[in-house]
């Protein structure tokens, strides 16, 4: 008798609480977001909980991209026209040190953490550094405008898109020499290793090229939207996200079948993406001075106002809310 009463009471509570739980607003991720304002010579520090920019870190001239160091102790920000690399505290944004480096546009550490590849877009050069000592191992002059960097999972090869000459270059990091340099499309931009192939977003067209990493041959083309610009794999590796610059869309692609699952309207020149623990995507919108925080389930997005020409961004959800 008592057991039946308990069961009925539990059922009543469940019926009462379920709608409240379903209707309650999703809890916002805590932490700090760093957004590079390329046109404002600054880094916006955003409170992930309130979606408010709380302050700006001024830099010299024109920062574009950022990447955490392999040990997680620093956040590296490249200031292209300022010709310097800034090392920030990844929790607070405090500047740890500055280093003169020519034209650090795009940058990325190899998966094993041993190499840092820096693409100098304006100066047509790719610099490979020893990540531990930050010693320049070799400079590769290239034609032209190297813009995005990716690696093979074994860290043996770096791939860099050459935007103005429609090519992709592969660099052997063991021998420090060029492996191949092949045409892959029209204004190639974002590049990513996925399932044994290299994917290249082709900004001059509406597709992502699938490239054989052995010889640079294009083996397939996946139509995602006008001006395919950049691409990112979700942390659970279940969705490949592609930003289409000219179309003002973000496409969700099945990474196995390479079929487009859904397309979201993100106007204002969608560019870089990072993933929050609550499943939302933070997307910089270059011409709108905003970051879109997209809920993939609903297709709605909230906006965070930042500075001019927001480009690279990086989320640190473990950091405390940033101080003003």
């Amino acid at each position: 008798m008592r057991r039946v009463y308990f069961r009925r009471t539990a059922m009543r509570w469940a019926v009462f609480l379920l709608p409240i739980l379903l209707l309650a607003p999703h809890a916002r991720a805590a932490g700090v977001a760093f957004v590079i304002d390329s046109g404002a010579a600054a880094i916006s520090v955003v409170d992930m909980a309130t979606l408010q920019e709380v302050r700006r870190i001024p830099v010299l001239r024109e920062p574009h991209h950022l990447v955490p160091s392999p040990d997680g102790k620093s956040l590296l920000v490249g200031d292209t026209a300022g010709n310097e690399m800034l090392f920030l505290d990844p929790a607070t944004g405090a500047i740890q040190k500055r280093m003169p480096i020519a034209d650090p546009y795009q940058l990325g550490f190899s998966p094993d953490g041993k190499f840092l590849t820096v693409a100098g877009l304006a100066r047509n050069q790719i610099d490979v550094y020893d990540a531990a000592s930050m010693k320049l191992l070799k400079r590769f002059p290239v034609k032209s405008t190297p813009s995005h960097v990716a690696y093979s999972p074994d860290s043996a090869t770096a791939f860099v898109t050459l935007q103005d000459t429609d090519r992709l270059v592969a660099i052997d990091l063991r021998k420090l020499e060029e492996k191949w340099n092949q045409p892959v499309g029209k204004t190639p931009a974002g590049v990513l290793w996925l399932n044994g192939k290299v994917l290249v977003a082709d900004m001059g067209t509406d597709y992502v090229a699938q490239v054989d990493p052995a010889d640079g041959r294009v083996v397939a083309k996946i139509v995602t939207g006008k001006g395919a610009h950049n691409l990112f794999l979700s942390p659970d590796r279940k969705i490949l996200w592609v930003n289409n610059r000219a179309g003002g869309t973000t496409a969700a692609v099945d990474p196995t079948t390479l079929k487009v699952l859904r397309t979201y309207a993100i106007p204002g020149g969608p560019d870089d993406i990072d993933f929050a623990p609550d499943g939302k995507l933070w997307i910089t919108r270059r011409w709108a001075e905003k970051v879109a925080v997209l809920d993939p389930a609903t297709g709605n997005y909230q906006t965070v106002a930042v500075g001019r020409s927001p480009h690279g961004l990086w989320l640190n959800p473990k950091a405390p809310s940033p101080a003003r």
């Binding site: 046109g39 404002a40 600054a42 302050r55 700006r56 870190i57 001024p58 944004g93 405090a94 500047i95 740890q96 040190k97 500055r98 204002g268 020149g269 270059r286 011409w287 709108a288 001075e289 500075g307 001019r308 020409s309």
Partner: peptide
């Protein structure tokens, strides 16, 4: 190293021009 803190000076002016250019 002490971090220079910048106010949002000029940000409003930039917004108008930047958004129009966008």
């Amino acid at each position: 190293m002490a971090e220079p803190q910048g106010p949002f000076a000029g940000a409003v002016m930039e917004d108008v021009f930047g958004l129009a250019a966008g």
